[in-house]
Design a binder for these strands. Sequence first.
DNA 1: ACTTAAATTTCGACTTGTCTAAACATTTTA
DNA 2: TAAAATGTTTAGACAAGTCGAAATTTAAGT
Lengths: 242, 242
Amino acid sequence: MAAINTRTSPKKESTIVDAGHSFTEENYLKTILKLSEQSEDAVSTNAIAFRLGTKAATVTDMIRKLSQKKLIHYKKYQGVRLTARGTKVAWAIVRRHRLWEVFLTEKLHFKWDEIHNIAEELEHINSEELVKRLDKFLGFPKFDPHGDPIPDSKGRLSRISRTTIKEMQIKQTAIMTGVIDHTSPFLRHLEMLKLTPGKEIKLLRMLDFDGSCIISINRGEETYISSLVASNILVSIRNEKV
Amino acid sequence: MAAINTRTSPKKESTIVDAGHSFTEENYLKTILKLSEQSEDAVSTNAIAFRLGTKAATVTDMIRKLSQKKLIHYKKYQGVRLTARGTKVAWAIVRRHRLWEVFLTEKLHFKWDEIHNIAEELEHINSEELVKRLDKFLGFPKFDPHGDPIPDSKGRLSRISRTTIKEMQIKQTAIMTGVIDHTSPFLRHLEMLKLTPGKEIKLLRMLDFDGSCIISINRGEETYISSLVASNILVSIRNEKV
DNA sequence: ACTTAAATTTCGACTTGTCTAAACATTTTA
DNA sequence: TAAAATGTTTAGACAAGTCGAAATTTAAGT
Ligand SMILES: [Mn+2]
Ligand SMILES: [Mn+2]
Ligand SMILES: [Mn+2]
Ligand SMILES: [Mn+2]
């Protein structure tokens, strides 16, 4: 299970600011960003190791390196936080990932559960110009196929208020704008139900004893979804402030 | 000048046949293919080292590895040749490279001298399905932006007879179908002259004392090109057998 | 043939990214 | 607050890819 992925970019061109991170470094940065979003606390060694499928010892080494490069703040045993620079670099990677995901679905017609792994590789192609042109080619999309926001070239990202179906009021209407669970089985299930970002969802009933929901999609017939499914679907309710 | 590029693909999916070559291995295979095309002889260690910007010692190591994997034939001090399998793998990489080049020019509007380095990275994204869909998206192109043939998914490639302008007869007409020199300065020079694949070229005069040529492009006004330029432009003359 | 010269391989050695086992620090929990 | 559990770092090793220097082999020259 050795998933090695090294690259010492000899890119002398590219942006002066921040070029030359290996595949591996980039994956660590992205992972730390993801984990940072999930809680205020510093990100733990174990959490990183788990998400990356490596061991804690390995993470400690990389943490040292990233810290030396001033991409993360680190004090022994205290976990890590991205620096301003690290944050910028990490978002740039996420931007590339999500733009490629749009490309794969919109242009190559991949299904939304097939794109993640390919984008996981494409995101490391490190050319400022490539990303700029890809963005334009795709029409400057604001969200990826899973409903996640794509930061613009300056790192600004459209934040919209999102809750799960579970938190909706009965008879309330909302637009589906994303998923929490990104795994293939879940995505395929949603596709089967024709429950994809952009659809209008009205919560008709929520069953007391197991929390499952009856909804209508685009004002069509009633659809039953389990509590688990409902709690993994993100929706935006009109007229809501962030 | 350490241009490292490692990857041990943990791809368990993908084609059963031939997956799981590192970036580095792929670059060696492609290089050996290129050098094989330039002469009948076995490819020498030094030639590979030179093209890859590495040292002979390094090449010897990789050669052993590739040989062990049955991708090349190798006897000490005798140079290497691709096996049937190695040839297939190498052409698949070339195919990906050239398809991405088409994408970069046709869809992202890169100039033909800017695409090589980016394609050099994209070619290693190893997904059968991705390449298949990209090919379709691009309309199954037969040639890349430099006029080089793109093998189809079975490895078949359209061979057309090509010579340089220097070998044309006076008053003869031909279609530009490629370049020998692929460097940026040369490509930019040709672009400035509007001398790109597809153009109709008529050789009007060839000067004796320095071999420079006067040609017309698409029946337009006369254009002067040096002997060096003429010898680096590939053309196809109608009604010629391979 | 015998002696150079050139190309190739072998021999340590270094860098990245990884792992296991053992040591050390911080938290829990009784 | 002291012992136990959990989390993190250190130490030693390994595979991949690379290099310089030295040893070998093949090719050339006379
Ligand atoms: Mn990745
Ligand atoms: Mn996504
Ligand atoms: Mn390459
Ligand atoms: Mn090309």
